[in-house]
Design a protein around this nucleic acid. Structure first.
Length: 275
DNA sequence: AATTTTCTCAACCGCCGCCGC
DNA sequence: TGCGGCGGCGGTTGAGAAAAT
């Protein structure tokens, strides 16, 4: 026996929303809010729609401050970088682009950005392709810290970076984002050659990010060892060589972190980043 | 100008995880 | 602890628009 449907499918309207339905939904939510119950909302609002449909319409179209229209270069860069880092976690990516919805970004990626990327040089294609594999690595992925705060990236974005995280498998190294305090609290493994923080799975890593960290600022470019595999996505600033940090070194950097304002400092009190 | 093909994007579907009972 | 309801998410679809022939 399958799961019960969320609504009576025979009695709900499907397809495009009319302006009348839009204003009904908007008026209702403006007045009463969602009440934390989307399933009950359409009935209360006098709409013959599935609750999920109402939620989607609100989030993707009616909600205030939704940004429609062309994506900027900066937004492109953010999407590309995050996609290369965390894969198709559209909601996480959307949380970094104020006014953009996950659906918008997903559509934009699938219809335009992906093609745009495939148009860049073949060598970069190879590297991007492999970087995208990160989202497909199933279990026991090992991650290691690399360079925090690269000036060129900051200058490019006007925002401070937080840690970059490199993930190595095979002969290629990939990058992702990591909240420093989460990494510190995760189990670490020592290795003769590399300082490594090990998450049980990429999923766990992503989960930690999505549950515990709201990124207001984040790194904007990738650099993996000697491969600047994302450089093709950026218009300026040649990438710099990453340096690696020993576990103790990172710990030392974070020991002065102030969790209230979520700022992290180097030992010499220069700001490492905020989030 | 008419027809076909391609593109775009709003909306749907179904799965998953969280939470309350 | 298990179950069911719900919200949230990512993949997919399909109608309409735009471009190509």
């Amino acid at each position: 026996m399958g799961r019960a449907p969320c609504c009576d499918k025979a009695n709900v309207k499907k397809g495009p929303w009319s302006s009348e339905e839009d204003s009904k939904l908007k008026l209702f939510i403006d007045k009463f809010g969602t009440g934390g119950n989307w399933i009950a909302l359409p009935h209360k609002a006098g709409l013959k729609r599935c609750g999920k449909s109402c939620r989607l319409r609100w989030l993707n179209y009616l909600r205030p401050n939704i940004k429609h229209g062309e994506f900027s270069e900066a937004e492109d860069t953010t999407i590309c970088t995050l996609f290369a880092s965390i894969g198709s976690r559209w909601s996480i990516i959307a949380s970094q682009l104020p006014g953009r919805t996950d659906n918008d970004i997903k559509n934009y990626w699938n219809t335009k950005l992906k093609k745009k990327l495939l148009g860049i040089s073949s060598s970069h294609k190879m590297n991007i392709k492999s970087s995208l594999l990160l989202s497909q690595q199933p279990q026991n992925q090992q991650f290691l810290f690399s360079s925090p705060l690269l000036p060129s990236a900051s200058a490019l974005s006007n925002k401070p970076s937080i840690f970059q995280l490199s993930a190595g498998f095979g002969t290629t190294t990939h990058q992702a984002l990591v909240p420093p305090h989460e990494a510190i609290s995760s189990s670490s493994t020592s290795s003769s050659s590399s300082p490594l923080f090990q998450f049980n799975s990429q999923h766990q890593f992503i989960k930690q990010i999505s549950q515990n960290v709201s990124f207001n600022n984040f790194l904007l470019h990738g650099n993996a060892g000697s491969q600047d595999y994302l450089s093709g996505l950026h218009s300026a600033a040649p990438l710099e060589e990453c340096s690696s940090y020993e576990f103790d070194e990172i710990k030392r950097m974070l020991v002065t972190s102030n969790n209230n304002n979520r700022e992290f400092f180097f030992e010499d009190q220069s700001v490492l980043g905020t989030f």
